[in-house]
Simulated assay, not measured.
Amino acid sequence: MTTSTSTRSPFLDLPGAVDGDGRDVGVAAHYGDPLREQRLLSEGLGVVDVGNRGVVTVTGPDRLSWLHSMTTQALTGLAPRTSAETLVLSPKGHIEHALHVVDDGETTWITVEPGTSPALVAWLESMRFMLRVEVADVTADFAVLGEASRAESLDGERLAWVDPWPAPVGDTALYGPLEGHPGADRAWREVIVPRADLLAAAGDRAPVGLWAAETLRVQAWRPRLGLETDHRTIPHEVDWLRSAVHLHKGCYRGQETVARVHNLGRPPRRLVFLHLDGSGHGLPDPGAAVMAGEKEVGRLTSVARHHEEGPIALAVIKRNTPVDIDLVAGGVAAAQTVVVAP
């Protein structure tokens, strides 16, 4: 994969910067000490360049009601500078796009996974009809900085998407809070800034690589499109009902599947968090088989080494896999924590 010179991060010119790979090429994976970078990020002293995320804007008086009608979240009453997470589903309810949404009162700003903004914009354009909306891919002009800090310390002056996870959103409050969740007292947010001001917007905080941010994501049981999902994934399987789906709003594409599986309570697969045996030197690769005895029950989706908890991972496994058994992931013993109850 090649990186456009217009979106290549200036952070890659900082001392020690190592470029990411795959979907995360073009931003720094780390700056030489990933574990130290994790600690800085956890303490609110670091900033992560996630400038490879796509940035899309929607303007016009119909923007919020239009997005509301096509995606999984209730957006008509979204107040300025209030964040939301929503999904674009296929007609059969499979996840196609995960949207981080914040409105500034005049423009709805959306950030999406790297490389997916052109497809999202093309689909949105095809759905405009006669509505008063304008859609633009502004990835070349705007970028995203990520930061993790205590919720009470967040600065509300800059335009930012604040992750609702793990608090339940809207009518998903029926799920209740995730008691004891490792990310419950930490807020992750993505600040949208002009790409030309990316370095300056970091201020005096230490640059932190994407590996550190991904480790905190895994620790927080947070799914990522394209890693925890494939072409068959429905929101129930990866716990996206909690933060990205409104269960009693009007019709949208894929709603029939969402309602049917929610009412039956039987998604075919479920997300789990794994503590991996750290006695070996290596970690299993994402995509490795997860075994229950002699039976393959799923696949690893994300793997990381946490500075306090050691090797951790997310996996998607068959729904009916017993919750009280240890698993083996890529040849490594793994203790499961239930994220999506079977």
Rank of each mutant, 00 (worst) to 15 (best):
F11V: 06
E96S: 06
R319T: 15
V340I: 13
V169Y: 00
A167N: 11
A288D: 15
V303T: 12
W240F: 09
G254S: 10
G280C: 08
L154R: 15
G265D: 06
V339I: 15
T82N: 07
L78E: 06
S42I: 11
E152H: 04
H306K: 09
L120K: 03
A288N: 06
P235Q: 09
W188S: 04
S90A: 14
S126Y: 05
V27R: 02
D277I: 09
D163S: 15
F273S: 07
D62I: 14
K249L: 08
A259L: 14
P284V: 12
K249F: 08
R242A: 07
D277M: 10
G93S: 12
V218Q: 00
G51K: 03
I110S: 00
H248I: 07
K92R: 15
D137E: 10
S149L: 15
S243N: 13
R53I: 07
L45W: 02
R270Y: 03
E152C: 03
V245E: 03
D103A: 13
A119E: 14
Q73G: 04
P91T: 09
V340R: 00
D24G: 02
T108S: 05
R266N: 06
L225G: 02
Q255G: 11
T233P: 02
W240G: 00
I312A: 01
A187I: 05
